[in-house]
């Protein structure tokens, strides 16, 4: 039970954030959160970062489980977490507004 909480839940959260970042680089989802568009360079940077996060999750889950279980787990959670982002954006996009605001902050 404790491994469940210490590994799977953070992994889900991690994938969720990665997908939320990806979604929030898209104009229609940013608008739904009440934000303006991002500059193209920032968009590219964030997409790259999200991609790295997704790959890192694969590495982590393979390191924690065996290669077979880790891969299947990653594929499955990828679908579910992306789905969670889509549902959240459909019903309560405002909940992602803090993240969207954070993405727009100048990096100083």
């Amino acid at each position: 039970m404790s491994t469940t909480c210490l590994f799977y839940l953070p992994l889900c959260l991690w994938l969720f954030i990665a997908f939320a970042l990806l979604a929030l680089t898209q104009f229609n989802h940013r608008r739904a959160c009440g934000m303006t568009d991002l500059p193209p360079s920032r968009t590219r940077l964030i997409r790259l970062m999200a991609g790295v996060m997704l790959l890192f999750a694969l590495v982590i889950s393979i390191a924690h489980e065996s290669s077979g279980f880790g891969f299947l787990l990653w594929v499955g959670l990828l679908s579910l977490c992306a789905c969670a982002v889509a549902l959240l954006l459909g019903w309560y996009p405002r909940l992602l507004a803090p993240l969207a605001r954070l993405m727009a902050k100048p990096s100083t």
């Binding site: 990806l22 992306a82 982002v85 889509a86 459909g90």
Partner: peptide, 22 residues
């Protein structure tokens, strides 16, 4: 572009297509 698109407030037909795509 519609990777995360799900619009529960739209008409049933559009909603079904969103669900199908999603």
């Amino acid at each position: 572009a519609e990777f995360f698109t799900f619009r529960p407030s739209k008409k049933p037909r559009r909603l079904l297509l969103d669900l199908h795509n999603l």
